[in-house]
Structure formats: structure tokens, C-alpha cells
């Protein structure tokens, strides 16, 4: 479906067709951008820029290749551009060993116990792979390609982030059990 849509758009642009493309990808794009930038307002800007970029480059898009990785890459780049603009650039492999909050860290899960908030507590380099994996169901290889990282780096970041999230979630569970 996407393939046909793009093919038709490449032949002749129409708002109607481009809107169809937008509707197909808007959900995941908005959610991903929100979870990465941490704000719905920023996500609106990011998604808008993403689709403008798609519009500008669709003529050059190679129909023999899958659309999703191409789209995800643009979306990720726009998120990164936003983070950089707001001094929250995603560190590359050079600064890989950024530590997560220490084991002893506890948050007031009574108030901040929402899982989404926990994800937001992660730093960018750990949060982004989590968002891409769990919100977009992307494979580690795809995440690595998108973030220009080694697959093992992605695995490592996911491992650390999952460990921390699981810990927090268990902690919250324990806390709420005690509280009830």
C-alpha cells in the first residue's frame, strides 16, 4: 500500500495522497517524537519537519527499498536535531559509557510511578533505543542502523535500560504493595 502510494506521489503530487501517507505514519511518528523529545509540543515540530523532509525527498526515494527504515531515519534525525538544538544531543559511541542513575536511586513512584515517566527518567542514549524498540517494535539491527551505532552498543544500552526500568517497576510494585 505504501509502495503504491509513494509511486503515485512520485508520478504526481496530490494533497490527498500525501495526507494518506501522513495518516499511515502519523501515529507512530507523533508517539515516537513525543517519547524522545519528552514533550508533545516539540513532537509536533519534529513530526512536521519530518514530513516536510519526506515531501522534499520523495522524488528521490528509491522504490525498490523499504520505506519504513527511510522514514524512521528521517524521523530520528529530526528528533536528534531537536535534541541538539536544546543541548540534548544523543551521545555517540565515543561517550558510550554514560552511567545510568545509580542503583540506590529511588523515585517517588507514588507520584511518578507511571511507566512513561520512568522511561523519561532515562538519559537520551538509553531512552531512545527503548522508545524505538517498544513503541516502534524495531529490531536491534534497525535501531543500530538508524542511530549509526554498532549493534552491540544498542544491545548494551537496551540491556542497561531494561535492567533499570525493570528494577524501578519492581520497586514501584513493592512500594504499592507495602502501601496498600
Amino acid at each position: 500500500m505504501v509502495h503504491d502510494l509513494i509511486q503515485r506521489l512520485q508520478q504526481e503530487y496530490s494533497d490527498e495522497l500525501f495526507e494518506q501517507l501522513y495518516r499511515l505514519y502519523a501515529d507512530r511518528a507523533i508517539r515516537t517524537a513525543t517519547a524522545i523529545t519528552g514533550s508533545a509540543a516539540s513532537a509536533a515540530d519534529v513530526v512536521q519537519e519530518t514530513f516536510i523532509r519526506v515531501y522534499r525527498n520523495l522524488g528521490m526515494y528509491d522504490l525498490s527499498r523499504p520505506f519504513d527504515p527511510w522514514f524512521h531515519r528521517i524521523l530520528y534525525n529530526e528528533c536528534n536535531r531537536y535534541l541538539k538544538k536544546h543541548a540534548r544531543m544523543v551521545p555517540s559511541e565515543i561517550s558510550e559509557e554514560t552511567d545510568l542513575p545509580p542503583e540506590t536511586d529511588t523515585y517517588e513512584f507514588d507520584r511518578h510511578g507511571d511507566v512513561y515517566e520512568m522511561v523519561q527518567r532515562l538519559d537520551d542514549e538509553h531512552r531512545i533505543p527503548i522508545v524505538l524498540k517498544y513503541l516502534n517494535d524495531l529490531a536491534e539491527k534497525d535501531i543500530a542502523d538508524m542511530m549509526e551505532l554498532n549493534v552491540n552498543t544498542v544491545k548494551s544500552r537496551l540491556f542497561k535500560a531494561r535492567k533499570k526500568l525493570k528494577e524501578w517497576m519492581l520497586q514501584r510494585q513493592g512500594g504499592s504493595q507495602h502501601g496498600t
Binding site: R31, A40, V115, Y116, V119, L135, L165
Partner: peptide, 19 residues
């Protein structure tokens, strides 16, 4: 975790038409 991410980004979806 997946549900939490979807729930946490649900509000942003209201912007779809505006975007």
C-alpha cells in the same frame, strides 16, 4: 512498558490534525 509508552504519548495524538 509498551503499554506505558503508548499511554504516555496518547495525549500528543490529539495534535494529529493540527500537525
Amino acid at each position: 512498558l509498551k503499554d506505558g509508552l503508548e499511554k504516555g504519548t496518547e495525549d500528543a495524538m490529539k495534535q494529529q490534525d493540527e500537525i
